[in-house]
Amino acid sequence: MLLQIEGLTKRFGGLTAVDGFTAHVDEGEIVGLIGPNGAGKSTLFNLITGVFPPTKGKIVFDGRDITRKKPHTVAELGIGRTFQLNLLFADFTVLQNVSASSQVNPHSSLFDMYFNTRRYRRNEARIAERSLEILQLLGLENYKDELAKNLPHGFQKMLGVARALATSPKLLLLDEPLGGMNPSEIDFSLEAIAKARDSGVTVLIVEHNMQILSLCDRVVVISFGQKICEGLPQEVRENEEVISAYFGGEHGSA
């Protein structure tokens, strides 16, 4: 098991956003996390990556307890993520976004960075190469010198993924990667995610859009902070509770 979540609970004052959530992700899987709006999906991501600590519960990644670790530590350990609101480095170019995100591997110390050591220069060269590769993987290489804030929406989303991949993650957390995309962009994204998985990255995707199910090996359904179902995409799609949860609130396009 690459990622193991046990009994995770998060309360904000009187509101319980996540309640006793338990799940796991195995290496090499693509796991989908679906559920209606406000179900607690993004909160879960924030808990895993350490944006805030849980009220109760435990998170174990790659054999290590990361429950209370800070986000940059979690990133160093190998978890990369995108953000639902697609936060980027708006004033950096596309290429800069990716190269600035390449802190984890290869790693330069502050000393290396300031004194321009041989290791630093080697690392920077490798980062420059690899950043270009990542951009090519996601079809962004023609925009490499555009400012991130000037990109059309779909490309910004792709840039978010590129940025996350730049951290050489073992586990990639994608928060609504298909949001606001048109059909051709969606197809492209699904392909890109599959390619990422094939190159050895485990993926956990939060998504609204049911098209994601075609890509997932396994699906976990969350509603009101609780896991209500888990299994193969086909099983989940036909599950009674899931359908009611979605029709009770919102439902994504199938």
Partner: peptide, 19 residues
């Protein structure tokens, strides 16, 4: 570059390993 990254979005900066 890291400082400027923090200035633009401290959330993203942290998420890529910048303390």
């Amino acid at each position: 570059t890291n400082l400027k990254a923090i200035s633009q979005s401290h959330l993203v900066a942290e998420s890529v390993g910048i303390d």
